[in-house]
Amino acid sequence: MSNMSTETQDRVQHEPSHGSVRVHVISFAIMIVLTVVAFVLVGAGIAPAMVVPVILALAVIQVVLQLYDFMHLKERGHSFPTLFITSGALFGLIFIVVMVLWP
């Protein structure tokens, strides 16, 4: 039993952590690209009505990437953290919609 655990631990500790470094760097590269695209779109002087939905979508993609990869939500046993953070985000969205649309 203890032998098996040690093997599991070795596998868990060495192989995936090197693999996940690569995944993290790829996520980071995607985030940088999304950021640069957002800045360039704004700098290009295209009509704001077209740019705003796009940069908001880019921001959401980037945040999902942060949460799932950098904050490890994609890993096993993260259903409660996902529930908490999405509830927080949902409440936040309601606050914003209500405040902006109220009058």
């Binding site: 953070i85 985000a89 969205l93 914003i96």
Partner: peptide, 12 residues
């Protein structure tokens, strides 16, 4: 989750 609500209020 609570911080989300807090920052969302400031955004609102």
């Amino acid at each position: 989750g609570g911080e989300c609500a807090l920052f969302a209020s400031l955004f609102a």
